[in-house]
Design a protein around this nucleic acid. Structure first.
Lengths: 341, 341
DNA sequence: TTGTAAGCGTTATCAC
DNA sequence: GTGATAACGCTTACAA
């Protein structure tokens, strides 16, 4: 049904090859012929079939990008950064949402390989993503991990200094007067969660505050997870004076639970987290956070990937660790001191 | 470099066709042969080349989805809805971000057609998207518009009742006591903007309030647009007592500008808008809005598209108009009455 | 049950 | 300058 090269060729009274040359801007085509061909292309609304083209050229000029959640204010800029960089390099991005689900992630990886993407940018669902990655790595498939490390998986990666960031956040809370600090952490399966927990522990240790397991709440990193963890936490007596949540959505969920109990931040309890909540920060200079440069993750990741694809990368895998910047706002009683309770 | 059907065939000591049959689960393959082939597939990590497959079958099992901004809290659920529905129908979604830019949108459309997507779900950048759509429509290409109509472009569409929603919003402001209501509107090029402006006018008219052009501020629908419009508005004397912005991002930008001037919502000025701000609403029951069911847009749109693709849709184009629900919260002085100024 | 031949729409190669 | 031919990896149609 769609118009092919041959249709154009016929209409222009030339061979398919000539049309191909015109389409690809090759030199060595008579000006008059070129004009006729271009006319035919326009008249027929010819659009080249990239499938066929890729099949012969063995180049799809496409990379895959899998993130756990496009909607998350952290990953959205990651996507944008990757897309912009890719576009500049003449590449398209196939974007997939794994929803943090290993099965879905695996499906998507197969799908992308099947589409013959030339490389893959992946913010893995968790440590168990390893199984899906192993065959790729063995085959020397260009792969760059984003944001999350996968144990015993040696490949290029762009990552934050999560331990340092979490430590800073914790130390900040302590500096402001908190000593009883709850931590909402990820399932044990995700490197960022582990590292931030570690940073939390180190932060406490520096001040000689014992880390109590009662104050550590493993949960999921979505809003619901934060909500549930907060509900559990609220049964503690005495309550912690501050919470450090593993990411932005968790912090929002926690806020929600706190609000429902009439507990306000920062007056009654301090709250800090990793990742900013883009639009929210505009409204009220509110949550104290470790802000991660999402766009940089995306563009650096894409750069690494293109170096890999073009073979300029060498054998050793590269590891880029981005600094985690503390953004101090009002959510931890900086102004009011430690809450009364 | 990658493993092909023939490699598998050779390894299994059969013909390519037999491997193809096994891969596609066709019946009529000897159990023992099948076992051998499957073994070879696993051993070689064979993954079929979908490009080749699509080339011959003329089916890519893929649709395109173009939205102006994946990050926008309205479009994010649209994407999710479309993806979920597509996945259930055995289709993949190629997601593109037009950034509301006509050139980019056009590029993406070509790209998707070139990829031979079987249909396109499009939230158009504006009225001028028409030029890019015309050839598609002429060719009978399956196309469903989302959220925004394009004048003189007859095709399937899922859309909100923007006029009614905007009218409700305006009437609500009036009911609460406002009479001097500013409206931040989109560029004239986008149907949603026009319709909401129309609803605003109708809302005023119902109460016999004259619509003054001085109170209407055309701007862009991102945060910056809202910010700038608010700055202009702040030069009015007397100030309006309430603002109705065309969408969520514009409202956020307006908030930002107001905050910087020490004007608070809803104490000093009322603020309402179209679209909710997902995460924000959790924190503070805040903005009064017309909430649009993003997920429904996506899934209904996908459904329409699949009916089109499978030829079940008939010749006439369908138009689904979703009701726009008012969510009344605290942003328009409901509790405090009309502000003093 | 299995294999052979042709072709999907394009491009690389080498003649003319 | 231009065109015939083969090939990319796969499936459809038919033959064995």
């Amino acid at each position: 049904m769609p118009v092919t090269l041959r249709d154009v060729a016929q209409k222009a009274g030339v061979s398919a090859m000539t049309v191909s040359r015109v389409v690809n801007g090759s030199s060595g085509v008579d000006a008059e012929t070129q004009r006729r061909v271009e006319e035919a292309i326009l008249a027929l609304h010819y659009i080249p079939n990239r499938l066929a083209r890729s099949l012969v050229s063995q180049q799809t000029k496409t990379i895959g990008l899998i993130v756990p959640d496009v909607v998350n204010p952290f990953f959205a800029p990651v996507v944008r950064g990757a897309e912009t960089t890719a576009r500049k390099a003449g590449y398209r991005v196939l974007l997939c949402n794994s929803e943090g689900d290993l099965r879905l992630e695996r499906e998507y990886i197969e799908d992308l390989v099947s589409h013959r993407v030339e490389g893959l940018l992946l913010a893995p669902a968790g440590d168990h993503s390893r199984l899906a990655l192993l065959p790729l790595l063995k085959g020397g498939f260009p792969l760059v991990l984003l944001d999350r490390a996968v144990p015993e998986t040696d490949c290029d990666i762009v990552i934050s200094d999560n331990v340092a960031g979490a430590k800073k956040l914790t130390e900040h809370l302590i500096a402001v007067g908190h000593r009883r600090i709850a931590h909402f952490t990820d399932s044990d399966d995700v490197s960022t969660g582990r590292d931030r927990l570690e940073g939390y522990r180190q932060g406490l240790a520096t001040s000689g505050i014992p880390a109590s397991d009662d104050l550590i709440f493993p949960t999921t990193t979505d809003r619901m997870g934060g909500y549930r963890a907060a509900q559990l936490m609220l049964e503690l007596d005495p309550l912690p004076t501050a919470i450090f949540t593993v990411n932005n959505m968790t912090a929002l969920g926690a806020m929600q639970a706190l609000r429902e109990r009439g507990i306000s931040v920062p007056e009654d309890i301090g709250l800090v987290c990793f990742d900013d909540v883009e639009h929210l920060a505009v409204l009220s200079p509110f949550l104290t956070v470790v802000d991660q440069p999402g766009e940089t993750f995306g563009s650096l990741g894409a750069q690494l990937l293109f170096e890999r694809i073009s073979g300029k990368a060498g054998n050793r895998s590269r590891r880029i660790v981005l600094q985690a910047d503390l953004i101090v706002r009002k959510s931890c009683c900086v102004n009011t001191g430690v809450p009364a309770r």
